[in-house]
Write a protein that binds this DNA or RNA. Structure first.
Length: 878
DNA sequence: GCTACTCGGGG
DNA sequence: GTGTACGAGTAGC
């Protein structure tokens, strides 16, 4: 019998732990396998251990074993005690006792299920084969097949069992107006559920405590919640999903169950309730099932301005939410039948969208691949970060070679390491970019630089030489020494070799594959292998890592810096080309060719020659061509990029470190940046770019910019009165509340605003765009030019050597009032208006500003004057 | 420039 | 549950 592992845990029966492996067969049958003969253990180092654990009922036996310590090269193993225990939950007690008596302990903080999985080399979402005969009689577990497991075999099989998804979304209303509902006080009024496979012939169901067509009605919340449990248990999903379900819906449901005295028993184990741990956020654990939050995955995997369900689904699915404002839910709930039906549709649609996000975008693929590769359970891949994956992987590999792993550092150790890291860890080498706009630039980068360095120089905690005496060590530029490969090949280099070779194989398979589903799965695997390989370097410098070593982290970056510098010198000497920029693992090189093919040939030639003189598995690759390249500063540039593939050249506009979209920028800003960059890069015409920018500024002053392009949108996260500082969107809400309370947006609503002219503080001049049109209010063009357009655009023009004066034109000085007046004078003013850009100076403290602070006065409270280089400072007139 | 704090998503 | 664990963006020095 073959099945895929969804979840693993253990349960105590007669004071003995029994491991349970939850899974699913290819036929879609749910399985729970029980493994009995496995006990928790850990290692300790020190004298007279037997005495220390005498009388400990929880200790079953102590054995002497020979192991290697995890950090520092050793020729021989040392003696350690292996302590086997009765009860996994009691391990910390014994561990802490031994620690307090001066013993050094190892592997004493590994969750029992992971201890088991590591010893048997099992992975989350991995396949195993069991004999499948016999049965286990228990009513504490719900699974179609309950079997004892004696022998099993890990199978390196591709493919995914079809998973069954349930998507949930709840609605509730707050007792307190204008606040988010509180799960302690406010009942759930509606629950919508969508099924990936029809359940009792339905694709979805909506439960509510108000009755109507289209909902299953309930007397009260308690009955409704009981029905939810029934649905989950009957439908029996492998995955429960929803949008922000981990931090809203599920914790809310659990709290409401508590309030209603309902036991939250809806996992595949009827003995353990669903738990909701509150740490920095919630963590929900449902036995045998996986909680998947589409919001969290999308936030990690996609770069977007906003991540609300409407934006996300419009962008990724091409369809949005039903049109109900958050603050209106109560009205729809209490309102007419028609309104109530809208709420039903709204709720159902939300679940449908959240489900589609997970399924249509195949969001789980990557996480499943990461689980398989690292050995981590899918749930933990979703809930925790890189450390968990890496440590699960290295535990296995260390143990295979008789190494033990250290425990996690305690708080004081972590803060010690944090300090050390700040003081000592050096990063990659970033070349000072050659100023100006460049053409014909080749981009070369090192293929998997850090993992390759680790392999090439055999960098590993197990090869790090702590005390001299090894001949011909590998010495890093930072001074650390490592044992050469022929004496001991490091475990980390071995892991990386495997991961990187595996990745090449997967790439090969992908090329041959024609089935799109298979290709997708392989692509996810390939990506996961890359993610895992790249995570090792960071791990050694991570203060919470078990295997932490500043020497290792610094050796890796030091080798990296050395490599990139040598590469630069080699290219400049050997080819006579100029390296105009480089960062960590890449170099940008100017070549004397125009034609893309010629440039490519040169790029490949350089890459080949450099690679041939590099050590080990280091490889420099020709990546792409920048037809035009504009570096602003280190880490910031824009480029017109050409990459070749089977179908020819693929061109893109590329920016690094230059944001073109930001939450607090209006569309005009983003558009202008993009357009200006495009003119510079594609047309190679700086003058035109300046001209374009001036044109936008002019249109702004003349009031010709469509108001939609000036809108900045923010979400009301709390009541308008609740904001500490003065914030534009909150101020606007206060205004609307006064003039038309009925239309007033509430907490959770998105507020779009523009800034209008006036004498008040900027934030108080936020207005509703529709109101502005209706009342014909003048837009504050000064604000838009200075605060929206100039800051990002100025940085671009500075890189082109264009001074402010040049950029902004010359002419006589005028008052701001004239310069920004939205009238016929504006036309005359436009030529001269930028003069004031020489800056501002405070009348009182003489502090100067390029741009005045939002408040319009100096931070000392003093009045701001023009800081005119030609004459005395002039008063700013608003 | 760095560090400390906030807030996202959800109703 | 043998595990204490976001992360980007901004305000504040």
């Amino acid at each position: 019998m073959l099945f895929q592992i969804l979840d693993v845990d253990y349960t105590m029966v007669d004071e003995k732990p029994i491991i349970r492996i939850f899974g699913k067969t290819e036929d879609g049958e749910t399985v729970c396998g029980f493994y009995e003969d496995y006990l928790p253990y850990f290692y300790a180092r020190g004298e007279k251990l037997e005495e220390a654990v005498k009388g400990e009922g929880n200790v079953i036996r102590v054995e002497k074993v020979k192991r290697f310590l995890p950090i520092g090269y050793q020729k021989q193993t040392i003696d350690l005690h292996r302590i086997t225990l009765r009860n996994p939950a009691k391990t910390p007690e014994i561990r802490d006792k031994l620690r307090s008596r001066g013993f050094e302990v190892f592997e004493a903080d590994i969750p029992f299920k992971y201890r088991f999985m590591a010893d048997f080399d099992l992975a989350g979402m991995g396949w195993i084969e069991v004999d499948g005969s016999g049965g286990v009689t228990t009513n504490t577990v719900s699974a179609q097949r309950k079997i004892p497991i004696k022998n099993f075999k890990k199978i390196g099989k591709d493919g995914m069992v079809p998973l069954r998804f349930l998507c949930l979304d709840i609605e509730c209303v707050s007792l307190k107006e204008g606040e988010m509902p509180d799960s302690r006080d406010d009942p759930i009024i509606m629950i919508s559920a969508v099924f990936s496979e029809p359940h009792k012939g339905e694709r979805s169901i909506v439960l509510s405590t108000r009755s109507d067509r289209g909902v299953k009605p309930f007397e009260g919340e308690k009955e409704m919640l009981e029905e939810l449990i029934n649905i989950i248990m009957d439908y029996d999903p492998d995955v429960i999903t929803g949008f922000n379900i981990n931090n809203f819906d599920m914790p809310y449901i659990l709290e409401r169950m508590r309030q209603n005295n309902i036991s939250p028993m809806f996992g595949r184990c009827k003995k353990h309730v669903t738990k909701n741990q509150i740490m920095s956020r919630f963590k929900i654990n449902i036995a045998g099932r996986v909680m998947v939050d589409s919001f969290e995955m999308i936030k990690r995997d996609f770069s977007m301005k906003r991540y609300d369900l409407n934006t996300v689904s419009n962008e990724l699915l091409g369809e949005g939410k039903e049109d109900v404002k958050k603050s209106q839910i109560e009205k729809f709930w209490k309102g007419s039948q028609e309104k109530f039906r809208s709420l039903i549709r709204y709720s159902k649609k939300d679940s449908e969208l959240a489900m589609k996000l997970v399924l249509n975008l195949n969001l789980l693929d990557k996480y499943v691949a990461l689980a398989k590769i690292s050995g981590t359970l899918l749930q933990d891949i979703l809930d925790s970060g890189e450390t968990t994956r890496i440590e699960n992987l290295i535990l296995r590999e260390f143990n295979k070679e008789d190494f033990v792993l250290p425990c996690k550092p305690d708080g004081s150790e972590v803060s010690k390491r944090e300090k050390m890291r700040r003081a000592e860890l050096k990063g990659g080498y970033v070349l000072e970019p050659e100023k100006g706009l460049h053409s014909s630039v080749i981009v070369l980068d090192f293929k998997a630089m850090y993992p390759s360095l680790i392999r090439t120089f055999n960098i590993c905690p197990t090869t790090l030489i702590m005390k001299d005496g090894v001949e011909k060590p590998v010495t890093s530029p930072s001074g650390a020494k490592f044992v050469p490969e022929n004496i001991r090949k490091g475990i980390i280099p071995k892991i990386l070799e495997r991961l990187m070779e595996e990745r090449q194989k997967v790439k090969g398979k992908m090329k041959k594959e024609s089935d799109s589903g298979k290709i997708r799965e392989l692509a996810a695997e390939e990506l996961a292998l890359k993610i895992m390989s790249n995570a090792f370097y960071g791990h050694f410098g991570y203060p919470r890592a078990k295997v932490y070593s500043m020497e290792i982290a610094n050796s890796i970056t030091a080798f990296g810096r050395e490599t990139i510098k040598k590469t630069k010198d080699f290219i400049e000497k050997d080819f006579g080309y100029k390296v105009i920029y480089g960062d960590t693992d890449s170099v940008m090189v100017k070549v004397p060719f125009e034609n893309l093919e010629e440039i490519k040939k040169a790029g490949e030639e350089v890459a080949k020659r450099v690679t041939s003189v590099l050590k080990g598995v280091m490889e420099l690759e020709f990546e792409k061509t920048f037809k035009r390249f504009l570096p602003l500063t280190k880490k910031r540039y824009a480029a017109w990029s050409f990459e070749s593939d089977e179908d020819g050249w693929r061109e893109t506009m590329e920016t690094k470190g230059i944001e073109t979209v930001r939450r607090d920028w209006c569309d005009l800003t983003s558009e202008t940046i993009e357009k200006v960059l495009e003119i510079i890069l594609k047309k190679n015409d700086i003058k035109e770019a300046v001209h374009y920018f001036k044109g936008v500024a002019d249109s702004m002053i003349e009031g010709k910019i469509p108001i939609q392009k000036l809108v900045v949108t923010k979400t009301m996260t709390k009541r308008a009165e609740g904001y500490a500082g003065i914030q534009p969107h909150a101020e606007l809400v206060k205004k609307i509340k006064k003039r038309s309370p009925a239309e007033c947006p509430g907490v959770g609503d998105r507020i779009g605003y523009v800034i209008v002219k006036g004498a008040e503080l900027l934030s108080k001049r936020a207005e509703d765009p529709l109101y502005v049109i209706e009342k014909k209010l003048p837009i504050d063009s000064r604000y838009y030019i200075e605060n929206q357009l100039l800051p990002p655009l100025e940085r671009i023009f500075i890189a082109l050597g264009i001074s402010k004066t040049e950029l902004l034109g010359k002419g006589k000085q005028v008052s701001l009032f004239t310069a920004f007046a939205n009238n016929s004078k504006a036309k005359a003013a436009k030529e001269v208006y930028y003069k004031y850009m020489e800056g501002f100076v405070c009348e009182k403290c003489y502090k100067t500003y390029d741009f005045p602070p939002l408040r319009g006065v100096c931070e000392c409270g003093g009045t701001l004057l023009f800081n005119s280089p030609q004459g005395p400072a002039r008063r700013v007139i608003y």
